[in-house]
Amino acid sequence: MSDNTIIAKRYATALFQLGQEQSKLDVIETELRALRVIFKGNKGLVQFLKHPRLTVDEKKQLLNDSLKDFSKETLHTLMLLIDRHREEIMIDMIDHFILKMNDLKGIADATVYSVNELSDVEKQRISATFAPKVGKRSLNLTNVIDTSIIGGIRLRVGNRIFDGSVSGKLSRIERQLVSQK
């Protein structure tokens, strides 16, 4: 585990504990999810915030102006990261906070690969079927279209993969035939 990951976890844990004490976990989670969308949609934003020509005060002013409706806990954490020149761990910190929230709620993020877009009913059925298998109450599914699986689905929860795709079954049959020779 890299130093940045360890540091990001510490900031996420501190913000999580502060959110618990202030009874603002849901508010902070909503803000951080919105911020994650902003950072992931604008890949150069973190590099911009790390730019040496921007002073710490300019960076703080930019965030204060952009995120003026955010809670003081979230803003204070972001200001600390800027003060300590840790802009590059903002996304990791947000991800770790969301993981802690998901653990608290009994939710896991998962990616489901299918040939076609899944309906909400299909996503709910997949969540209800696989959540108990990974020890969670529900799954927060992201649907990815992948025509190479031919049919069926492939589900990834953390580092676990459940493969019910046609291409996965064909490759298992191929391995069995090759190993029998």
Rank of each mutant, 00 (worst) to 15 (best):
T30D: 13
T30V: 14
T30G: 14
T30P: 10
T30E: 13
E31G: 02
E31W: 02
R33C: 06
R33Y: 14
A34L: 11
A34T: 13
L35A: 14
L35K: 09
R36P: 07
R36L: 14
V37R: 07
V37G: 11
V37W: 04
V37H: 05
I38S: 02
F39C: 13
F39K: 05
K40Y: 11
K40S: 15
G41Y: 10
G41I: 15
G41D: 09
N42E: 12
N42D: 13
K43W: 06
K43V: 14
G44I: 03
L45F: 12
L45P: 06
L45M: 13
L45H: 10
V46K: 01
V46Q: 02
Q47T: 14
Q47S: 12
Q47F: 14
Q47Y: 10
F48T: 00
F48S: 00
F48C: 00
F48L: 07
L49K: 05
L49A: 03
K50M: 12
K50I: 08
H51W: 03
H51F: 08
H51E: 01
P52M: 01
P52A: 03
R53F: 10
R53W: 11
R53T: 11
L54M: 10
T55E: 03
T55M: 00
V56Y: 03
V56F: 06
D57C: 03
D57Q: 12
E58Y: 01
E58I: 04
K59N: 04
K59W: 02
K59S: 08
K60D: 04
K60Q: 12
K60M: 09
K60V: 08
Q61L: 10
Q61S: 08
L62M: 12
L62S: 04
L62T: 13
L63D: 14
L63P: 10
L63F: 09
L63N: 09
N64Q: 15
N64S: 14
N64E: 15
N64C: 08
D65L: 11
D65P: 06
D65Y: 04
D65G: 05
S66G: 13
S66C: 12
L67V: 11
K68T: 15
D69I: 08
F70N: 06
S71L: 04
S71M: 09
S71K: 05
K72S: 15
E73R: 11
T74F: 00
T74R: 04
L75S: 10
L75D: 07
L75C: 09
T77D: 03
T77H: 03
L78W: 01
L78Q: 01
M79A: 03
M79N: 00
M79W: 01
L80R: 04
L80G: 03
L81N: 03
L81G: 02
L81T: 05
D83K: 05
D83F: 01
R84T: 12
R84F: 01
R84S: 05
H85P: 09
H85A: 14
H85E: 15
R86N: 04
R86P: 01
R86D: 08
E87Q: 11
E87K: 02
E87W: 03
E87N: 03
E87H: 02
E88R: 10
E88A: 06
E88W: 07
